[in-house]
Design a protein around this nucleic acid. Structure first.
Lengths: 353, 353
DNA sequence: TGTTAGCACTCCCGCATTGAGAGTGCTAAC
DNA sequence: GTTAGCACTCTCAATGCGGGAGTGCTAACA
């Protein structure tokens, strides 16, 4: 266990380093944080802390900088809660009242705000939607050449799609098709409905409805597309350019790899697959080589009590952890409000998810 | 008019500079391009070309580099046609056969390919869709709590949206509402249908349908959302990180501004509003200060003979113009094929636009 | 035993200097 | 009109040289 004084020295060093990005020397520390002891004592404490793995020295006559382990101890034991200013809160609160009901727009804006308020990179994943079970498929004959396909799920989602009919289709065919699809698929969890299952269904159907070959495949296609688009989460990256102002990202080659990562949606999704609540991975704790001196702080948000997405900030390990966490907590709240406000039934239809 | 020899010297310098990114000296030029004259003669020609504004000298004892005007002359008069390799063509051809029918996916992939094949940044705008006139609005009573809104246009688009009904609505109300909306809006070009017009309609309607207050606003809302999402083009930026390999983008501050631009969708859209065919804006020809040493080469693609989008490459003025143009031409063809293949009616429903 | 002042030592960083190299313009000869 | 030669200019990388910041150690002190 660390002595009280060691804790305050470590905390002071991290606070100082986060602000200045320069190695912290004993003199600067004594001057700006009144620790009540001399520089020599601080030096002794620093030497101890270094030996214990909390600090590092870039070279022999430089000040100390925190190690990953030092940051870890800081976020676990030393960090104090940070309060957002009112103007920061207001900025985030706007999200709840965004006019556009499109989820895309909300999340894109949110990721940009996240970056703006943290000066790092904002990352947000959209939640998966297909969490329920399919309850029914209906086909409605709209006009000579148009039909409407409706897919219902047990958690209240309705997907609808207009289909163009081949000339020779009759109403009774359409109805029997809908009944057949419902019969075979109703009750299944969405994840189970795959291309393979649809293919089987397809070949079964072909035996009975030879003349409607084309139409059947269109229904299956529409269903498939919906499943695909809903099963896939998207990632919104906002304000990536902001980290270019940070001193640790002055090396173009390094930045290049990082920005390449931001375009790897699949990789990001994996990276942002997180436990509920606030999660922090510091430096080496990140597996990817590109991120060995980056920290990701993330939080999850929940829509309709079920499907969850992640909001995260990626920045240098020298990060203002307390502030970032406050921003994330507030943003999480805003997103949950934005997506489950009073008119949620409407919203659900209009939103991409 | 430039002498034949001056033209070959200029062309050789540009070719050389595009490859090496280093100022081109007379000796290097004589060695690598057999122009059949001595370095002294080349020096004289270079001095002339500089005086005429085609070349510049970073400092007195450096080689020459092309000016914006030099590049302009090159693309207008000297450039030769470039042929894509088969593997490059294959890469682009994949786009036509992308399984996913989502336009988003096609364009995002295309922008990435564009970057990959050029080593610069790929920019693509999705075409605007709302080019026709509204012909009818239909409301269909699906179940006790659900109605379907259908919006038809004269160029064959159909938008559909499921609406949740307030408890007390009756079928005849729904029908009369649809008739009223159609009566007031049919025949109008899509651009004319704005929030303001809908607001007027809304207040008129309230007088007659006091009890359906809520429902009416939902229909208007759905219509509005559709108009918004369709009237707005999106921009897909791909492979931005690739230009970080180019020597002109080693300055982080410069890169920062450029990357900030890539997140300004509105600005990009404006920038990519282009004449049909290949357009090139070189260096200072671009208005934005960030882009004073960048070139944008763009081409337009057309879907359904009407709505057009832009594909473009943004890179340093020292750009492999011939190659970029070939890539753009080929890509344009692929996109047009991808979006207007045989099953285009289906596609139109499924695609975002 | 813990704390502090003092001091020698180390290392980075910015600055000026220097020499090699590349390229030019000019001149004179062809 | 073309070319060889040469003096000149300028950049760039390498080198060397304090100044400054910060440390660890030692010895004195409470």
């Amino acid at each position: 266990m660390l002595s009280e004084r060691k804790r305050s020295v470590l905390k002071a060093i991290i606070t100082e380093y986060v602000n200045t990005a320069e190695p912290v020397g004993s003199r600067a520390l004594a001057r700006r944080h009144n620790l009540g002891v001399s520089t020599a004592t601080i030096r002794n404490e620093m030497a101890d802390l270094e030996e214990m793995g909390f600090l590092m020295q870039p070279h022999v006559s430089a000040g100390r900088i925190p190690s990953d382990y030092g940051y870890r101890f800081y976020v676990d034991h030393l960090m104090e809660h940070d309060q957002l200013t009112y103007s920061e809160q207001d900025l985030l609160n706007q999200l709840v009242y965004i006019k556009s009901l499109e989820a895309d727009m909300v999340l894109a804006t949110a990721s940009r705000l996240l970056s703006q308020l943290s000066n790092y990179v904002g990352l947000i994943t959209s939640p998966r939607i297909h969490t329920g079970r399919l309850t029914a498929i209906e086909l409605i004959h709209l006009s000579r050449r148009l039909a409407l396909a409706l897919f219902f799920t047990d958690n209240g989602q309705v997907e609808n799609r207009v289909l163009v009919l081949p000339p020779e289709v009759e109403s009774r065919h359409i109805e029997s098709l809908a009944a057949y699809f419902t019969h075979r698929l109703a009750g299944r969890p969405m994840e189970e409905i795959t291309g393979q299952l649809l293919d089987e269904l397809y070949s079964e159907l072909l035996e009975d409805h030879i003349q409607n070959h084309d139409f059947i495949s269109r229904i299956a296609q529409a269903l498939m597309n919906w499943l695909k688009s809903g099963g896939r989460s998207r990632v919104f990256t906002g304000g990536a350019h902001n980290i270019l102002g940070q001193p640790e990202f002055q090396d173009v080659e390094k930045v290049r790899h990082l920005f390449a990562l931001f375009e790897e949606e699949a990789l990001l999704l994996q990276l942002l697959q997180r436990e509920p609540g606030i999660t922090i991975t510091i430096g080496q704790e990140n597996r990817l080589p590109v991120m060995q001196d980056c920290t990701v702080v993330s939080s999850t948000y929940t829509v309709n009590g079920k499907s969850t997405g992640t909001v995260a900030v990626l920045g240098p390990t020298r990060m203002d952890y307390a502030h970032v966490i406050s921003v994330l907590e507030h943003l999480t709240g805003c997103l949950e409000k934005a997506f489950s406000s009073h008119d949620d039934e409407d919203r659900q239809q209009d939103a991409v998810f």
